[in-house]
């Protein structure tokens, strides 16, 4: 699928959903390609059926019952329900897999949004906060506890995982993970006033050594 992607228009990009750099984003990216293929097939089928209606034909005694059997029961009910049932189950299965779960190697951090800044704190390094940059270890699941001090924002690192809102008075937890050390761009993804466009942040994924240094406060 990567080949199709580069042939078409290019998938890579610092904010690309289809250029995943972590397990959650990768699962969702696969989901997208599967759905795109299915949708294209269905669209093709509908267009062929539609075009065929305009062919020259004899109109005999239009048999309403047979038409209902084929078009409404066959295509409308049986076909759509089977496709949709499969998709619903697949989608929920994927969603279930992406849920944050307790585990020994899970790192907990928190993200606090306000107009127009992100402040991050770390369970492994109490008292330390960073503005605009979130440090995480690469290759380990990270649970981000997200909240807001003023309006609704949304925490989104497209190459790592889906987004989750920062809502005043609530704490939402999102599981992210980066395969490799590196920098990943993050965005606020719910309109939050005139500073919306520049309300961005960076996720820095460190290798084990650098992460240990960060946690112990030695990296400065």
């Amino acid at each position: 699928m990567g080949v199709t992607c580069s042939l078409l228009i290019g998938c890579s990009g610092a904010l690309s959903v289809v250029d995943p750099a972590g397990p959650a984003a990768r699962t969702i990216s696969t989901l997208w390609w599967v759905m795109l293929a299915g949708a294209a097939a269905i669209l093709g089928m509908v267009l062929v059926l539609l075009g065929a209606a305009f062919r020259a034909k004899e109109i005999g005694d239009a048999d309403e019952t047979a038409g209902i059997k084929v078009w409404i029961v066959g295509l409308g009910l049986v076909f759509s329900m089977s496709v949709l049932a499969a998709l619903t189950v697949y989608g929920l299965h994927v969603g279930h897999r992406l849920m944050p779960r307790a585990g020994a190697d899970v790192v907990a951090v928190s993200a606090e949004a306000r107009q127009w800044n992100w402040r991050f704190a770390y369970d492994n390094r109490p008292g330390h906060t960073t503005d605009g940059v979130l440090h995480i270890p690469a290759g380990r699941p990270v649970d981000v506890a997200i909240t807001s001090l003023d309006v609704v924002h949304s925490f989104w690192v497209p190459r790592l995982a889906g987004k989750l809102d920062a809502i005043p008075g609530h704490v939402n937890t999102l599981r992210i993970e980066a395969d490799m050390p590196g920098s990943y761009q993050g965005l606020s993804a719910e309109y939050n006033g005139p500073g919306y466009r520049m309300h961005v942040f960076t996720v820095k994924a460190h290798d084990a050594e650098a992460w240990d240094a960060f946690v112990s406060g030695a990296e400065q």
Binding site: V17, L31, G95, L98, G162, K163
Partner: peptide, 9 residues
Amino acid sequence: VVPFDWQTH
């Protein structure tokens, strides 16, 4: 499909 919406919302 919930996970896809998390990305495209």
